[in-house]
């Protein structure tokens, strides 16, 4: 009994499953790589001074590309481009979508109608196509690609937040606050929003993978990062031109795959940990 309770205090059940551990380790590794890329990379990611299209070997673990750049160094530096932008993207989507959805759910009426019709408008298009259209219209650059993904990403947060806020605003403690003279804004900030953050956090974590995929996809299509930049999607794209040298496209592709998988694992774990019903189901299975 005492052993069990001591174990429980360390980490919740959901976080001790293999997938959670794997996801956590991979995500953490990539974060460290992003921070420490200049220390870890053996070569300058932009210098075109090595033999061209050298296959993977002891000197160049991931080989070199058609311009004579070390792919291993470029993949490491790529983490500095993709990961911060993806995180920024998700944070901005949560803030914008969450705020709009919260206002829609709390104030209702025309605010609700306006915000949710815009959200429906975005939902009506296939995500990738709409992001491409927006990115193409704004002009090809990494900033514009981020903006384009932002345009397609906020509505899901707006929808979820709206529903949660609508359920919360009739709760008795929210009404008590209003009876004590809280303005609608104060009520939203103090009573409503802090109590709906859990599910939104899960959605955001699950969305990191999707956002990275979309952002790399835009770069792959030439609508994002410009060529010399070591962005993973752009690197895969340039690898397609030299299909015989499989390593040029494979390694940046693997980088995208591992990050997306890691954050999906983490998102699943977070969802299971926050939802007591699934958490209990996991526990029962583990016993």
């Amino acid at each position: 009994m005492s052993r069990l309770s001591r174990r429980r205090r360390r980490l919740p059940e959901a976080w001790r499953r293999p997938l959670a551990v794997v996801g956590g380790v991979i995500a953490l590794t990539w974060l460290i790589v992003a921070v420490a890329a200049p220390l870890l990379a053996p070569y300058d990611p932009l210098a075109q001074e090595l033999p061209r299209l050298a296959p993977p070997g002891p000197d160049h673990w991931f080989g070199t590309d058609q311009l004579g750049r070390d792919i291993f160094s470029r993949v490491l530096y790529g983490a500095r481009v993709s990961i911060p932008l993806t995180l920024l993207l998700v944070v901005l989507s949560v803030l914008i979508g969450g705020l709009l959805g919260a206002c829609a759910g709390y104030f209702g009426r025309w605010v609700d109608e306006t915000v949710m019709r815009f959200a429906d408008l975005v939902f009506a298009f296939p995500t990738v196509i709409l992001a491409m259209v927006v990115a193409a219209a704004l002009g090809a650059s990494l900033t514009n690609a981020v903006l384009a993904v932002l345009v397609v990403a906020w509505p899901s947060y707006a929808r979820v937040t709206r529903g949660l806020v609508m359920g919360m605003r009739e709760r008795e403690f929210v009404l008590s606050g209003r009876l004590l003279g809280f303005s609608a804004w104060r009520s939203l900030r103090l009573d409503v929003l802090p109590n709906v953050t859990g599910p939104i956090l899960v959605l955001a974590t699950l969305d990191i993978g999707t956002a990275l995929l979309l952002l790399s996809g835009l770069s792959f299509l030439g609508l994002g990062a410009k060529p010399p930049s070591p962005e993973w999607g752009a690197m895969v794209s340039s690898g397609v031109e030299v299909f015989d040298s499989w390593w040029v496209a494979t390694f940046p592709g693997l980088a995208i795959l591992t990050v997306v998988l890691a954050f999906n694992f983490l998102g699943d774990t977070l969802r299971d940990a926050l939802d007591p019903r699934t958490a209990r189901a996991i526990k029962v299975r583990a016993l």
Partner: peptide, 15 residues
């Protein structure tokens, strides 16, 4: 001022 029925939802759990 009012005191509500359900003690489990009449206080903000986060404050």
């Amino acid at each position: 001022q009012m005191v509500f029925q359900d003690p489990y939802s009449s206080l903000n759990p986060r404050r």
